[in-house]
Write a protein that binds this DNA or RNA. Sequence first.
DNA 1: ATGGTCGCGTTGCGA
Length: 265
Amino acid sequence: MAITIATWNINSVRLRIGIVEQFLAGHAPDILCLQEIKTIEDAFPRNALIEAGYPHLAIAGQKGYHGVAIASKIPFKTVEKDDWCAMGDARHLRVRLENDVLLDNFYIPAGGDEPDPAVNPKFDHKLKFLREMVQWGEARRAQTKRAVVVGDFNVAPLEHDVWSHKKLLDVVSHTPIETDLLAEVQAAHDWVDAVRHFVPATEKLYSWWSYRAADWAAADKGRRLDHIWVTPDLKDGLVSTEILRAARGWDKPSDHVPVLLTLEV
DNA sequence: ATGGTCGCGTTGCGA
């Protein structure tokens, strides 16, 4: 069967539940993975998602910061969450689907402003998180052949995943130390970048535009921070992808837009 | 070169 998985950094699910409903009504993914829900689990807008047709909910919440969730039309066999870097942050959820496909949803730390782990603890945390992901991939690759990983990775890995490769080489999200580490994460499980499977690496492609631009669309200084990867065994099942740029122009938008993948599993 | 805008939960912090 073909399923559609979407990932979206929503930047407060309570504030933006209206555009979540709009997105689900218009695009009807089978599974929606959210990051930065910015709420505890008890205050998560469960009823809105159930009424929208997504009764299967996995939520890892935290007061004020971070937080991830998975809302699904199809049931989960299991739900797990890992504690990355022993920080106690709500940055990860894993579900097993009925066909035994594993789906991991990540919110990787943004990393602050200064790209130097010696002076910036937030950047140090980001690099440690990525190194743990390398270990995770190496440990799991032998036993997990059918898996999808999505999320806000807060790294724009390729030259044309940012509006100016040269100008962003020393900007957190596109520094070589981060892009090299993300490449290690990808290699550790031979992950296939599902979106770039369909869009050539020579084409500019973004999923995030800063709130600080006076006119985000005119300036178009975006970055591709949100990703969907699949294991090689699922590569032949890739059907299509979409980055919903229009969502950046919706009422009271998130600074990220939904990224969608349809695949046969 | 600088500062620009968000959301949460209080007026600072993280993005």
